[in-house]
Design a protein around this nucleic acid. Sequence first.
DNA 1: AACCAGGCGCATG
DNA 2: CATGCGCATGGT
Length: 302
Amino acid sequence: MNNEVISLPLPAHFSFEECLWFLNRNFDECLHRTDADGVEKVMIADGKPVLIRVTASKEHLHIHVLNEAVTMTIRAAVIDFVSNWFDLSNNLQPFYKLLKQNERLAYMPDTYNGLRLMGIPDLYEALCWCIIGQQINLTFAYKLKRRLVEQYGNTLKYNGITHYTLPDFETLANVPEAAFKAMQYSTSKAKYLVNIARAFADGTISLEKLSALPDATAQQQLLTSVKGIGIWSANYALMKCLRQPGAIPFGDSGLNGALLQHGLIEDKKDTASIIRFFEPYTGWESYLVFYLWRSLSKVKVG
DNA sequence: AACCAGGCGCATG
DNA sequence: CATGCGCATGGT
């Protein structure tokens, strides 16, 4: 068994505990496993499933590559993935400065200190998750995802534990309607997931293609051209995968709820007031959304 | 038992 | 363009 470790220096304002807390929350996540010291996940590197374990010490993040020898290619891919996942190359200082200027948000830099916007580096995973999570509560959404992944996903066994990844494009594209129904997917969710799988299989959508577009508006247009990806999903993916700092998932029920709870808006249908609220946070909109989501969970870290 | 959930597409004004 | 409606189905 290999167990090579790659260590990355941590930026300022980084709390592994906060990040790990988010990865766990109280949800039944099936695409990674958290424990007291870290998180394990299967990612694709150099075309192969690679099981990584991420832990941290005071000044470093440690990536343990568990099931493969660390070639140059794998090493680069793993570093890239984890850096994106934990948003390592970002200085939160300016964001915290902005938060402190709003009396209702001023508590956040202390309460959630070092929390990073945890990403979904795999675009396919991000978009599938959007569709699964649309218009249903998160508890149920995680249940639906687990059913799909356990029936059609790929597995990797390590030390007696089975780790899962999403089904391949082709597999997902060919899941019969009746099977979706049996897993309690609505007919539209089923159709949308197949659309996404096809779009990836035939190259209509890819991270490379999306990244090559000039701006977030063009990226939104490409994403929403797939039936099932609306403006909320497009912005969610841009926020969690492409890390577009200005992407705001307008209409999001959690976002609206948090804005109401903080007394920052009076009516969730008043889109203009929401746009106005975000104006001072140019460049940090998606971070603010993430912190507002965080505020919905009253459970503390540690 | 209503009302809601990390919306979307499509048909109408 | 903006608004409204039906959709499906479990959670609270």
